[in-house]
């Protein structure tokens, strides 16, 4: 915003320089160091890398040791995301229908509450729940439930925000034109919220895919999602294979999320109305 830029005057430079430095030190440096160690020819991940080899990427992308947990993580994340999106979008639309502002506020408070529950406490709770219900095989269901809950606040906040930016008269107009609730949701609200829902889904997928605390507590020994495998590996030694796996996962996340953002932008640009 130009007016904001002008209001900062000469100090604006210092602020932007400091922010640039913070971005470099806090965000860029650790990522660059991690990526660089994944092509070292040594057997330990250590900066600076010595030589250049793609051997570790080859190992990660072919060995069952990495691929099997990867597949499990992707499956769990896909199911969890589908649930989080269905429940989160329905909740956001449902809350927008509430006439009492007190009820809407209470719902928002509750929908964001899972962010405030420490993952480890949720893990302990779900773990005990599994034991008491005698769910030896149902632990995967508990894991999906817990991880879905951890992604739910993000889906809700993103979609609820997009709903408040919709013209409230669109809903009224559809009502006066004879549309029932289902038609309004299907033909008016969901199409307009589409880009936001896609972005929320991808974000939820990445959140669930990366979740490790609940997985550590709920998965039986020998059954691992990728983050659990990586956590266990890191507690032995930092190998270049581990940093290569980290690089691959991060790259996938960035491509997925970056792509969904592009789609969102493109769509929004096309259907822009004043």
């Amino acid at each position: 915003m130009t007016a904001l830029r002008e209001s900062l005057g000469k100090s604006g430079w210092a602020v932007r320089l400091a922010a640039g430095l913070a971005a470099f030190i806090l965000f860029a440096v650790p990522a660059l160091v991690l990526v660089a160690t994944s092509w070292t020819e040594q057997r330990f991940a250590l900066f600076p890398p010595k030589g250049f080899t793609l051997e570790w990427f080859g190992e990660v992308l072919t060995s069952k040791k990495w691929l099997q947990p990867f597949g499990r993580s992707a499956t769990v994340a896909a199911i969890g995301t589908a649930l989080a999106v269905i429940l989160g979008v329905a909740a956001a639309i449902g809350v927008s229908r509430l006439r009492s502002s007190r009820a809407a506020r209470a719902w928002r408070t509750v929908m964001i509450l899972p962010l405030a529950v420490p993952p480890i406490a949720l893990g302990v709770g779900l773990y005990n729940m599994g034991r008491w219900l005698n769910l030896s095989d149902g632990r995967m269901a508990l894991l999906i439930l817990g991880q879905m809950i951890s992604a739910l606040p993000f889906v809700f906040v993103l979609v609820a925000g997009a709903i408040t930016r919709l013209d409230p008269n669109l809903h009224k107009a559809a009502q006066t034109l004879g549309a029932n609730s289902w038609l309004i949701i299907r033909k008016v609200e969901l199409p307009l919220l589409g880009p936001t829902i896609l972005a929320a889904a991808v974000f939820a997928f990445v959140v669930i895919f990366d979740e490790v605390v609940l997985a550590v507590f709920l998965l039986p020994p020998g059954v691992e999602t990728l983050p659990v495998t990586m956590l266990r590996a890191s507690q032995e030694t930092m190998t270049p294979a581990l940093t290569a796996a980290s690089t691959v996962v991060s790259l996938l996340a960035v491509l997925l999320l970056g792509g969904s953002q592009m789609v969102g932008r493109g769509k929004k640009g096309g259907a822009d109305a004043p």
């Binding site: 107009a173 009502q175 006066t176 549309a179 307009l192």
Partner: peptide
């Protein structure tokens, strides 16, 4: 009756056309 069952036409100040 709900608005949708009243068989009315409503012209909004902002028109409320569906942008998509």
């Amino acid at each position: 009756l709900a608005p949708r069952d009243r068989n009315i036409g409503f012209l909004f100040q902002s028109y409320a056309l569906f942008p998509h």
